[in-house]
Design a protein around this nucleic acid. Structure first.
Length: 502
RNA sequence: GCCUCGGUAGCUCAGUGGUAGAGCAUCCGGCUGUUAACCGGACGGUCGUUGGUUCAAAUCCAACCCGGGGCGCCA
């Protein structure tokens, strides 16, 4: 039986004690008679110092052999050292190699997206991916806590379904004992049935969309949280959504400070989202803001900002290039690294400069009745420092089950929550129609097969009540909180068009 | 489906018609405290594929394959 070992995250409380660590080699550095081995164990990373004079020949050999990601068992003394992250290091008295790793493909240097995605199973070990997974876990727990503490019951909607909910999205079709079946694109309709049994429920499960989207905001398989509440109207629905996001951000800021620092997240940008209320704009108000001179001014200012930043970066790049020839090696590496950064940022600025005129055009020419495009949503959110709730959309652009606004029949009581900083729609939902005849008409008008909805119509026959709910996209929420550039980092094994492996 | 950018060493990239390059990784040697350690050396290439232009193609042209980003759609 092997010795009991301690998690690295607990070492700070064990200064002066002898401990046993089990983990993997994250990085190594060597001096004469001295080896520095960074060990990670899933809970954290610590530097182990191995001195040739202080350990056996076998242990010294093991430290020399330890390639990146080799598995190790280390016995040593915890020593305070303020230079280290975590404030401690371990002075080894014994090192045993559990397994020697072959040359590891993911080095501590830069890698491209395709290379890393092909090795996603290994990439998960990297510090940044580790931090994202921990924030994901924190967010999941916050969601459960928020609902559980408020009397919601977690229930599961089926993943295999016989019909498309909204009739618009492209679904993954499969063969179900010679019948066509689909992977669910939403658990909402079943959620409504469960809410009529329990009052307040939420589902937490995978969702599938077969759209051939190639953007940083789309996955073909993602996780969605869908609360559904009986005796709730649109205003109450907004309060639930707002409270949920507030809880998620508060918990992440309170409990994931280290992770967000690893991710270099600007947490001050998240602070505003811990305070409610979040601004509520009706669709019509949003259209007014979108087409306003204020929006044009904001976008012009943004364009000028980009131009200025572009000029500054180009100047810095040229200055670096000029002194590159005489620079020493270490300096050259710094310049190279900085140039990669500058080039990346410049590419983004070029893209923004191409996009901004189109955004201005799209915003200015927007006409009441249309659905917002991605850029319109982004433009709207730039006026605010926290999520905004847009409600009462034209019925024509929303799903068949939405309740109409009693004060304006052109409108549906739907709502979208748009995250700040360009993260877009993270919540979509609304108040559901309660009238059987209205729903029948809508199903027909949308060209959907009435037979598929017989059970759904029953919910309006037997005790139909006002009710509402929404869907929260987990990965989009994680991306926002973590400040990610792409949704694919927010889930352990992302499924995208052209990506089913590993 | 459309638009756009890209594919050069294991990795990240430079190389715009004239003998294929750098840093890192790997291996060897050096250095008692390193933080993407550093210093010296070695190893490492059908320049995505096919065809064309040319005395000569990584470089120019065409088609195709693969990937990034954007639009539409949406969480």
């Amino acid at each position: 039986m092997s010795a009991p070992h301690r998690p690295i995250s607990a070492l700070a409380e064990q200064v002066g004690q002898t401990v046993t660590l089990k983990g993997w080699v994250y990085n190594t550095r060597y001096g004469k008679g001295l080896a520095f081995v960074e060990v990670r164990d899933g809970s954290g990373i610590v530097q182990v110092v191995v001195s040739e004079e202080e350990v056996s020949a076998e242990a010294w050999r093991a430290a020399q052999d330890a390639t990146q990601e080799s598995a190790l068992e280390v016995v040593g003394t915890v020593v305070e050292d303020k230079r280290q992250t975590g404030g401690v290091e371990v002075r080894a008295t014994d090192v045993t190699l559990v397994s020697l790793a072959e040359p590891y493909p993911i080095t501590p240097k830069e890698h491209g997206v395709e290379f890393l995605m092909d090795r996603r199973h290994l990439w998960l070990r990297s510090r940044r991916q580790w931090a994202i997974a921990r924030v994901r876990n924190r967010i999941i727990m916050s969601i459960h806590a928020y609902f559980q503490e408020d009397g919601f019951i977690q229930m599961d909607a089926p993943i295999l379904t016989g019909n498309a909910v909204e009739g618009t999205s492209t679904l993954f079709e499969l063969d179900y004992f010679d019948e066509p079946a689909y992977l669910t694109q939403s658990g909402q309709l079943h959620g409504e049935a469960m809410a009529m049994a329990h009052g307040k429920i939420y589902t937490f499960g995978p969702t599938f969309r077969a759209e051939k989207s190639k953007t940083r905001r789309h996955l073909t398989e993602f996780w969605m949280i869908e609360p559904e509440m009986a005796f709730h109207d649109l205003a109450m629905n907004m309060e639930v959504a707002e409270g949920l996001l507030q809880r998620i951000v508060r918990d992440a800021l309170a409990d994931c400070a280290d992770e967000l620092e690893i991710l270099e997240r600007d947490t001050s940008a998240l602070e505003a989202s811990t305070a409610t209320p979040y601004p509520r704009l009706s669709y019509s108000e949003a259209v007014e803001l979108l087409t306003s001179e204020k929006t044009q001014e904001m976008l012009r200012a943004e364009e000028a900002d980009r131009q200025r930043e572009k000029a500054e970066l180009e100047e810095e790049r040229d200055a670096n290039a000029a002194r590159y020839g005489q620079a020493k090696k270490g300096e050259k590496r710094r310049i190279d690294a900085r140039r990669i950064e500058i080039d990346k940022r410049l590419a983004q600025i070029e893209e923004d400069l191409r996009n901004l005129p189109r955004w201005m055009e799209s915003a200015a020419s927007f006409e009441w009745g249309a659905d917002f495009g991605g850029s319109d949503e982004t433009v709207l959110t730039r006026h605010f420092d926290r999520p905004i709730i847009v409600h009462r959309y034209p019925a024509a652009v929303k799903a068949f089950y939405m309740k109409r606004d009693p004060e304006d029949d052109r409108l549906a009581l739907g709502m979208d929550v748009l995250a700040p900083e360009g993260y877009g729609e993270i919540i979509g939902g609304g108040e559901r129609a309660t009238d059987l005849e209205f729903l029948r008409e809508q199903v027909e008008a949308h060209g959907l097969p009435e037979s598929a909805f017989d059970w759904y119509f029953d919910l309006r026959r037997y005790g139909s009540v006002p009710h509402a709910g929404f869907g929260l996209g987990l990965e989009r929420t994680i991306s926002w909180v973590c400040g990610l550039q792409h949704l694919r980092e927010a889930i352990p094994f992302p499924r995208l068009i052209g990506r089913l492996h590993p």
